[in-house]
Design a protein around this nucleic acid. Structure first.
Lengths: 144, 144
DNA sequence: CTTGATATTTAGAACCATTCCAATTGGCTG
DNA sequence: CAGCCAATTGGAATGGTTCTAAATATCAAG
């Protein structure tokens, strides 16, 4: 009995948006695609630049809007490091971030459940955490 | 052979500053005192407000300068939460922060060495961390 | 396919925390 | 007490982000 989804609602993005009563727009699709394509934790400005070729007329405000929407839908995570510009990350598994002082790059570090458990064990009774954020700062020797 | 420390150089603050070739000034002393006195992770503006009674003419720029100086000397730590204003914390032991969504308050959570070790164990070879930051977000039931 | 109701996008102004600037003030050394 | 450099100051400038009001796009119903 659900009314037939209109033509534009299709991909996983559209579904998620619809679940929140939001619409799938070209801007949202392209912003999300850009994040999936190059997972280097871009800033809003960087996303803006990457989106432009596909959607010449898009505005920076819209990029901010789309990013916030994606974060709300739990499709993307916002990452902050010391008052620098917010960066965006489509990796939804539990992970920490490693900020390379030398290059400014941000790397994902997977967090095994056991470690996550141990970390949460430091909370005294009465503290109920909805989320943990773990950030390393240091130098990463080149991958080789 | 060290030249006699001049009269104003005395407390632990003055010593630390001198170690870095910096001077002990009334502004720095008062800013540091304020941080020690009420350890509720105040912002620069809040420190500014608390310092004024003792040093009526102090400027906000100076508060920022003093705070940065104290951070450089490792007497104080700067704490960031999701692009909010930087907060300052004189607790130098390894600890995480718990950000209470309901009240906006920030609480220190001690980190036992064992947990710290476990956390660092997630880093793949080649990643050398100089610092880790751990932040919880959630609700803290009132202390009692 | 049109219409109306509602979301979304847009450009630009506004905002806020912070940093920068150039000038003044202060403290220590000689 | 002279000179030098550090520190402070007020105000302007910056950078990232959010707000605003108007234009536009989307969807559901008819």
């Amino acid at each position: 009995m659900a009314s037939r989804p209109s033509t534009t609602l299709s991909g996983p993005l559209a579904r998620r948006l619809a679940d929140s009563g939001l619409r799938a727009t070209p801007q949202r699709e392209v912003v999300y695609d850009v994040l999936l394509k190059k997972r280097d934790h871009p800033t809003a400005e960087e996303v803006f630049a990457r989106v432009k070729p596909a959607l010449a007329g898009i505005s920076l405000a819209t990029v901010y809007n789309c990013l916030e929407t994606l974060v709300q839908c739990d499709l993307v995570r916002a990452v902050n490091f010391e008052r620098g510009p917010t960066r965006y990350c489509p990796n939804l598994r539990p992970h920490a971030h490693f900020h390379d002082d030398a290059t400014g790059a941000t790397h994902d570090i997977d967090l095994p459940p056991a470690v996550l458990t141990k970390i949460k064990s430091v909370l005294p009774a009465g503290y109920e955490a909805n989320a943990v954020e773990i950030t390393f700062r240091g130098k990463a020797k080149s991958a080789r």
